[in-house]
Amino acid sequence: MIPAAFEYHAPASLDDATALLARLGEEAKILSGGQSLIPLMKLRLSSPPHVVDINGIPGLSYIREADGVLAIGALTRESELEESEIVRARYPLLHDTCKVIADPLVRNLATIGGNLAHADPANDHPATMLALGAEVVARGPSGQRRLPIASFFTGPFETALAPGELLVEIRIPAPAARSGGAYFKLERKVGDFATAAVAAQLTLRSDGAVEQAGIALTNVGLTPIKAVQAETSLRGKRLDDATIAQAARLASAASEPAADLRGSVAYKKDLVRVLTGRALRKAAERADRRR
């Protein structure tokens, strides 16, 4: 499996990169971790005439929490997220997620920015970011803008990034007290995409009722799905069995999976229900521990 020939560009700055991308337009693909792009190129499912390697651009790899926001540079590798003490201690949903992406070797190259910008509905970070209510920062030839993640995924493998724009940072609101999250993914084996996966993030009030809930779904639709009705159904309620079951049913109803070798539509929809229940329980347990 040999990729087709291409012209290689390695811009040394964001300005160079955005200028180059603006000039090359559709002809160019951005090479970040390369763990999705290069396999596609080897299979010749993607044969871009130009490849813009952004790995040489300094200052795009960091994890820092400040001013109520966890800011993550787009070039941060999954393994760096996995090893981050801040992420492990304060963002369990994100920690859960980066541990189940592909396999440990792939995670040494794969980047969080690539995982989001590739916009594969089977990727894991999109649902997690939807549940966390993150923002992404896009940088283009004419400057920088912030987009809420909920408006980022516009279609399968499509995002709101304009031609010439690069995703440079992901911003996650720091968790309030009594917050917790969890990611539950059913995969056929390590390295597989999810048959279905659910990201849940909860903030509880002091009486145990739900202050805020984020629920989003992986690989059960043409885009990652934010299960808005399920989220709404939880607000102000205590997480008893009936409440969780109701939210799980609503999340399942929000899913729009297609049948494939991983399973039937009915199976995947039911998996969403089961995994939502489990993710909510785990999220609540974690929230409860972080008073």
Binding site: G34, D53, D103, L105, N108
Partner: peptide, 26 residues
Amino acid sequence: DTTHCGACTVLLEGRPVKSCTMFAVQ
């Protein structure tokens, strides 16, 4: 061909990576 088997694993700056899923220029 699909970045699954790891037979090509090498260390890049100390981290194990799949060398079939990187260009030499990188």
